[in-house]
Structures are given as structure tokens and as C-alpha cells.
Write a protein that binds this DNA or RNA. Sequence first.
DNA 1: CTCCGGGATTGATCTGAGTCAACGCCACCG
DNA 2: CGGTGGCGTTGACTCAGATCAATCCCGGAG
Lengths: 250, 250
Amino acid sequence: MKAAPVQHPPVIKLHVLKDACAQCSARELCLPLGLSDDELQRLDEIVATRQKLKRGEHLYRYGDAFSAIYAIKVGFFKTDVITEDGRDHVTGFHMNGEILGMDGISGDAYTCNAIALEDSEVCVISFSDLEHLATLIPTLQRHFHRVMSREIVRDHGIMMLLGTLRAEERLVAFLLNLSQRYAARGYSPTEFHLRATRDEIGSYLGLKLETVSRGLSQLQDSGLIVVQQKYIQITAIDGLKKMLQHTQTC
Amino acid sequence: MKAAPVQHPPVIKLHVLKDACAQCSARELCLPLGLSDDELQRLDEIVATRQKLKRGEHLYRYGDAFSAIYAIKVGFFKTDVITEDGRDHVTGFHMNGEILGMDGISGDAYTCNAIALEDSEVCVISFSDLEHLATLIPTLQRHFHRVMSREIVRDHGIMMLLGTLRAEERLVAFLLNLSQRYAARGYSPTEFHLRATRDEIGSYLGLKLETVSRGLSQLQDSGLIVVQQKYIQITAIDGLKKMLQHTQTC
DNA sequence: CTCCGGGATTGATCTGAGTCAACGCCACCG
DNA sequence: CGGTGGCGTTGACTCAGATCAATCCCGGAG
């Protein structure tokens, strides 16, 4: 046999195999949760492709035809909605193991934009395939419903935050939420980099960027956190939690 | 044959039969949407019971074990969440044809309270039965997913409202939303009774009750609506819509 | 290395909505 | 029929957060 010139060595193929759900670090947070090895493999088969995005790129846009949901493998995303009169509002920040795109199911088109805030990679899950597989694997069906329900509960929490908390409390709730999600992923709950700008955080929390900046500075002055631009260190997590509990004995 | 004394004439039984989904006025807005007659009947079978609630009664409470979702047959509900420190926040108002309780799926317990704001009746749908039936009727599965997704989209809309609109704009958005939902049910889109108090509306919109009251008065002074306590008449629906569009040419 | 630009911080001032308070309306009950 | 209590309206005042503006910081390009 003549040695045929091969430009892309099999290393790449190996890499593709490693992408499988079974090897994914986000497995325990993502759709595969609770599936048997066998079921896991069947789920893996419908994950048509994995997609890499550079920081700043759109995963999908408002109005795009809906056909898939996305599981974040690595990276960090924001979702936002834009009103007719141009104002936009960040509806969420999303990290690995979380599912994006469920807003598109109801109207066969996405209703918000999903934008990578750092270089990211997602698993593209054909929604009709997923629905079909869900009829065959009750565990998967159940878990998918839980994931959607969790999104509803999350949104209620944000509505509560936007409707009843004051500026600094919103910031505290935001930081604690990030902290907890980082912890669930095995990262430090007390030390992390914000991927979002002050403006994006403000939009998410219903505040102006200056208010976000001031709030962080105040928390720092109170000795609860250390802020250096996007770097955050929580030095008194209990202090933060207290701020959300008896926010005024009355 | 002797005439046996019958205390409850068959009229009552007939009434029970009339409760079936096929006869329900909310059919086109509710879970049955898109089902064939045959499928509809199978759905009907899993609707274990229908439940009547007096004004003010809880359909479920935060923390109650989750086992069913509820379709509103007639009536009007609010859902609210309560924080550890006692503050509560109304997360939604719900009318016939809408589904309550999906927040309970993720953690096997409801995460909010659902309270009837007028005498109401709901269909109790066992969730495990529904999931089972959904594996057999793809149309039903699909539709249920749409319903959950719609809830997510709705919540995003409220987050946008709470995060970016000013007080009067929030009120306008609220009124237009009600108007549209009444229209979809064949009621007048321009004339209706608010079932909620100013306080409940305020909680929903992230405003104080005084601000709600003032806002409604102002809209009345501008000639856009007529307010008499809970009675609302929209006299210039286009005017209201304009207020949400170019909210300031800048 | 310096320059450049986007983001972040901080200060001064303004304002929309919250707070406090008085009063009105209406339904329900004795 | 009048009292009572819950809900709604309206006014006066306050304040949290928005707005406007100056400056700073840092990373990337040349």
C-alpha cells in the first residue's frame, strides 16, 4: 500500500469522540442527568453537531426559525430581548450545562437573542429528535420537563428580584446566584470573573450601569467583597446572605 | 313498576358529562388544542376531577407536594411568591384556558401560591398520567411543550416590563395584555372588570398601589381609558399602543 | 514604547416613584 | 339604617436611583 498523503490525522476524530455526553463535565447538570449508559448513548446520537462560538457571536437571534435547543458545553452566554422601540433587556446569563432556546418552542421561532460572552461551545439538539426520543425514554422526558420547569421557576425568581428588591439587594442576589452556580460546577464560589459588562449586568437587574458600579463599590467598602474590574472575590458570603434575609426588621 | 323516590334527578349527571374537554369553551386555548376527537377523549379520561374554588381560596400553596397541573375552566387566579423576609410578589394573573402549576414540576413541589380571585373551576390533570399520555400522542406532547415554552416567553416579557418600562408604561402594557387575552376569549377587549386590587396589580408590576392608582387616573385624564374602581373601559386603544412604541423619539 | 478606545469609577444634580397621611367610596353586617 | 372596615384616591414631601459629566484604567494595535 502506498502511503497516501493525509492532511488531517486521526487525532481529530478522537477528539470528536471525546465530545460525547458521557465524557462531558457538565453531564450531571445537563439533559443526560439520570440516564443509563445505554440511554445516554441514544441521546448522544441525536446530538447532531457541536458548535463553537467566538466571544460576541450570536448563537441565535430573535425571529430565527426554531428547530433545535442548545446545551452549553463550555462558555458563557447572555440572552436578551429587544423591544420595538429599541430598548433591550438581558433576560439571563447562562453557563455550562444549561439549556438555551426553549423560548423558541412555542412559536417555532426564537423570541430572544443568545450571545456568547466568551469563546464557547454548545451541543445542538434537534428538538423533534429530542421529542421523539423522549417518548421512548421516560426518564429523559421527565428530565426535560424538569429543565423547562426550572427555567420557569428561575424566571419567577428574577421577576421577584426586579419587582421587590432594592438596587444593592439585587446585586447581592446576583452575586450569590453566580456563586452558587459556580459552586455547582466545581469552581470557586467565592472568586470568579464576571463575563458581563456593568451595562449588561445593569440591564439584567433593571439598573443603570453606574448604579451597578456604585453598588459593587459599596459592597467592597462594607468589606463583603473585593472588586477589581471583572474580578470578584466574596470575602463574607454570610454577610451577603444576611442582606437578603431580614432586610429591615419592621 | 313503583315510582321510587329519587332525590337527585339525572340532571346532575348530565351536568358532569358537560364538563368534558370537548364541550369546554376554553378548548381552543387549552391543552386539547389540535387533538382529534379520539385523542381528546383520552385526554378527558385522565382529567381525574374538576375542582371548584371560592374567591380567595388557594388552589395550591408554596411547598405543597406536586402531582398535578391545573387547567382553568372558569375564573381568574393570581400566583405569587413569598420571600423569606415576608415580602410577596405577584408573578401572574391567569384566566380560563391557561395552565397553572408547571412551576412544581422541577422540584416535585409547587414554588408559588395560586389563589382564586373570583369563584373558579379548574380541571385537575395528573402530571404522571399526562406524561404517559404524551408519549402516546405526539400532538399532545408537542402542545404541552408549547404551553410550557409560552410560559417562559411570557415571563421574559414581564422581566422586560419590570426591567425597562416606567410606571405608566407598565400599566399600559398590563391593560393591553388583559385586553388581548379577553379578546382571545370572545369577551370585550375594551371593557372589563379588574379582578385584582390595586395592591395586587402593583405587586405584579413592581409598583406601589398609590402609583397604580395615580397611573390609572392619569390615563383617564388623558382620555385613553375610563376607570371606575375595578371597571375599566379602554376608549383609545391605539393611543395606549402608541405609548409603548416610540416612548420618546430620541 | 505610546496611543487609542471601550469599559469602569466617581461626583453633582435631578426626578420619578415611594412614603406618609388624610379622606372618600362602597359593601357588608348587626 | 348607621357603623365599620377594606379598598381606592389624592396631596405633600422624601429619597433611591437615573442622568449628566469628568476622569481613570487597562488591553490591544501600531
